[in-house]
Design a protein around this nucleic acid. Structure first.
Lengths: 224, 224
DNA sequence: TTTTAAATAATAGTATTACTATCTTAAATA
DNA sequence: TATTTAAGATAGTAATACTATTATTTAAAA
């Protein structure tokens, strides 16, 4: 018997549900690998089709363009993170421990979750660091937002925001602080690995230093 | 008599110095406008050439590709900001006032600086918000870094980091906090205008709210 | 079991992008 | 005046981002 975690996705992101077929699952699986290997700019549906062993037209039957595929993949990860946070904090009564757990989850490269067969979360985490903001830093952001493409991100931001408010109900900027933590968990990681002089982390490149920085930032900010 | 501010740029960013000729200055001027109007993804050298009234090949004589042009433009803005910070804080003795001034400069849409003829800083500020991180979120970031393309950003980060240390010499993460302030001054602005539920700012979309958020964040973090 | 519908594979084609190359003209400099 | 240098004009190519068509396979419904 196998436990499977099904994450429900916004249907207007795709033309045909990739969860429903083998080819669809392969598109998700291989695009995660290929975006990670080549970067989003060099990623094309042609290369993706080749790596799967199908044709370009085959991929186009599932996704209108590579932007929607990126948004799909990234939304998937936000939803998965949101689930992880709920799951891993549900037995914690102390909101401070909860918030610490959240920071750790956001800033740590996860192990591949075996409950989600064709998705490798550890690579997804890397994609989020390098490509995540390209999902919304576009001219079409307002249209995309109307289609609710960013709801998973907003939901996650809310989840974290509520934990912040549990720690300090009077704190005035729970959502902004939440989006700051989420973005910085990724960006400080990118800087640590590629532009270290924008950080204060040692050459060991250890994620725990990012966690320490974020904990210091957050708990001083909300005055705990 | 005219006062002109000359910002010196990394020569390996360009093939021919755009500051040296009319066509070069037009390339800078029109690319700022065009990147702002169309977004970096849709921006091409052909469209740029058309808007200037020259040919595609003409633009290629100045810049190898659009990525280098983006890095050029963004580096220019980091240098200009660094200069602004030095200039506008030089008479301030209190480091806290200095840091407040820095936050305001970073988070405020500037007026067009008349000392820099062909560059419109207010549009550049918008470009930085929407396209800034695309300069380093690439597969070539390590090569670009070796060529010192990000030195202006690092210098700015250092300038701000030193002011943070003046406020609290014992604070452990001056560079990370500095890059956090710089990035968030832009990103919270983007969120405020396009994805407001990721922030706590009112519908008035006033930059002063971002400044308040960042001041609260920074001064609580460094425990002032 | 047969029919038929749906998904996929195979192939071709187009407009645009991201360049490179070459040749000519104009202007500045020696 | 001769000569370098920048700019304009034009052409060409490989790759990208698609759309369209037809044939073949597979799976579901009759």
């Amino acid at each position: 018997m196998k436990l499977a975690l099904q994450i429900n996705m916004n249907p207007s992101l795709y033309l045909r549900d990739p969860e429903g077929t083998d080819l669809g699952k392969n598109i998700i699986k291989h695009s995660i690998q290929l975006i990670h290997d080549t970067g989003f700019e060099a990623f094309t549906f042609k290369k993706l089709a080749e790596s799967i062993g199908t044709t370009e037209a085959g991929v186009y039957r599932y996704f209108e363009n590579k932007h929607k595929l990126l948004v799909y993949i990234i939304s998937w990860y936000w939803r998965w993170l949101d689930f992880q946070i709920g799951y891993q904090t549900k037995n914690l009564t102390n909101p401070i421990s909860k918030l610490k757990k959240v920071i750790t989850i956001l800033a740590t490269t996860v192990e591949d979750d075996l409950m989600t067969g064709h998705v490798d979360e550890s690579i997804l985490h890397q994609i989020l660091i390098s490509e995540g903001s390209k999902a919304f830093l576009t001219k079409q952001v307002n249209q995309d937002n109307k289609q609710e493409y960013f709801k998973p991100y907003k939901d996650l931001c809310n989840t974290v925001g509520e934990i912040i408010l549990e720690c300090n109900p009077k704190y005035k900027y729970p959502h902004s602080l939440s989006s700051t933590i989420i973005e910085m968990a990724h960006l400080q990681n990118f800087f640590m690995n590629h532009l270290p002089s924008l950080t204060d982390f040692s050459k060991s490149k250890n994620e725990s230093e990012i966690i320490n920085y974020l904990e210091d930032l957050v708990f001083n900010t909300i005055r705990i």
